[in-house]
Design a protein around this nucleic acid. Structure first.
Length: 317
DNA sequence: GCGACAG
DNA sequence: ATCTTGTCGC
C-alpha cells in the first residue's frame, strides 16, 4: 500500500477506498485508514493526500486534521468547508498488482473444493484453537478434549511472528500459519483431534471460505467455526434464543441458503455467538457438537480453553 | 445521520 | 485482537 500512496502526485488526492481498490478490494479501506493514522504509512511524505470518499479530509496522524488541510493547500489543493472537490483533484491512475484479488481467488478455489459431508462417526477427540497477540508475535493454543467426558487431554502452544494484517474477510491469511504450525506439532505428538473448533468463521463468510473452511480444506480434518461477532448472513433478532439455534441465510442464485446458525450462549445475554461448519461436517452436526460443549460460558469449552491458555502464555511470559 | 463487517 | 479504572450486579 505504501507504493500506492507514494504514487499520488503533488496537487492531487486519492480516497482510502480507491487505494484499497487498487490493491484488489475496497473493503480494505478501513485498514488503509488505520495504517495512515497509526501505522508506518503515516510517516510517508504523501500521507496527507488520502481523503474520504465524500471529499472530507478524514483523520490525520498528527491528531490535528487542520495539519492535513494546511499541507494540501500548500500543494495547491483547494479545501472548502473541510472538503476537497474530488472531481477536480482525485488521482485514479494507480499502477501495480492487486494482491487482495489473488488472495480472494485462492479462497474461492478452496471453497469450491470444500465439502460439507456428514461426519460418519462421532468424534472421540475435539480440539479448540485460538490466537492471542503479543506485539508482532501471535500465540496459538491447541487444547484437546475428550468428547465423551469433556475433559482436557492435552494442550500445546506455538508462538511465531505474524506477518499479515487484519483485514475483514482475510483473517485466514493472518492466522492460518499459526494454526498449521501448532497442528504440525500435535501431529508429531500423535495428538490430532477428530474435529477442530476454531475462533473464526467457517462457510459463514462472503466467499464461503472463512478460516475454519480453509483449515479443513488444507488439513482434511472436520472443522467448525465459532465467532462472537456477526460477519455475514441474515437472521431475525427476534428468533434468537438460548434454547435453540436460529438459522443464518444468504441469498444465492438457487435461493436462500443456510450457512450457519446463531444462539444465545446463556440465558442472561442478548449477544449471540455464530456457528458454521468449516468442512467435512454438516450444519446440523456443527450445531449439535457445539451445543455439547456449551456449559454456561460464552464460548464452547475447547475454544474457551484455548483462548485462556493463549492469553495466559502472554501474561506469564 | 445511521449502519458497521470474524480476529 | 489490543489498549485499560473503576464499577455495577449476582
Amino acid at each position: 500500500m505504501r507504493d500506492r500512496i507514494a504514487q499520488i502526485p503533488v496537487g492531487k488526492v486519492a480516497t482510502y477506498g480507491q487505494i484499497a481498490a487498487s490493491l484488489g478490494d475496497r473493503l480494505a479501506s478501513r485498514w488503509i485508514g488505520e495504517q495512515l493514522l497509526h501505522g508506518p504509512a503515516a510517516q510517508q511524505p504523501a500521507a496527507h493526500r488520502v481523503v474520504r470518499a465524500g471529499g472530507e479530509l478524514g483523520l490525520f496522524h498528527t491528531g490535528d486534521p487542520t495539519d492535513k488541510q494546511r499541507l494540501l493547500e500548500s500543494e495547491g489543493v483547494v479545501v472548502v468547508d473541510g472538503k476537497v472537490n474530488l472531481a477536480e483533484y482525485e488521482f485514479c491512475e494507480f499502477a501495480g498488482t492487486a494482491p487482495l484479488a489473488d488472495l480472494r481467488k485462492w479462497q474461492q478455489e478452496l471453497a469450491e473444493r470444500n465439502r460439507l459431508s456428514e461426519m460418519k462417526r462421532g468424534p472421540a477427540l475435539v480440539a479448540g484453537l485460538d490466537v492471542s497477540y503479543d506485539g508482532d508475535d501471535g500465540v496459538v493454543a491447541y487444547v484437546l478434549f475428550d468428547y465423551a467426558t469433556r475433559e482436557m487431554v492435552w494442550s500445546h502452544i506455538t508462538r511465531q511472528p505474524v506477518l499479515f494484517p487484519y483485514i475483514t474477510s482475510y483473517l485466514s491469511y493472518r492466522e492460518l500459519p499459526l494454526h498449521l504450525s501448532v497442528l504440525a506439532t500435535a501431529m508429531q505428538a500423535s495428538r490430532i483431534a477428530d474435529l477442530l473448533m476454531i475462533d473464526g468463521s467457517g462457510i459463514l463468510h462472503p466467499r464461503r471460505s472463512g478460516i475454519a473452511s480453509m483449515l479443513s480444506a488444507l488439513t482434511g480434518l472436520p472443522t467448525i467455526g465459532v465467532t462472537k461477532k456477526h460477519l455475514c448472513g441474515s437472521y431475525l433478532a427476534s428468533d434468537l434464543s438460548a434454547d435453540r439455534f436460529c438459522d443464518l441465510h444468504v441469498e444465492e442464485k438457487a435461493g436462500p441458503t443456510k450457512l450457519g446458525a446463531a444462539i444465545l450462549p446463556t440465558r442472561k445475554t442478548k449477544r449471540p455467538i455464530f456457528v458454521s461448519p468449516g468442512g467435512l461436517v454438516s450444519c446440523d452436526q456443527a450445531e449439535a457438537l457445539v451445543s455439547h460443549f456449551m456449559v454456561g460460558k460464552r464460548l464452547p469449552t475447547p475454544i474457551a480453553a484455548a483462548d485462556r491458555l493463549s492469553r495466559q502464555s502472554i501474561t506469564t511470559g
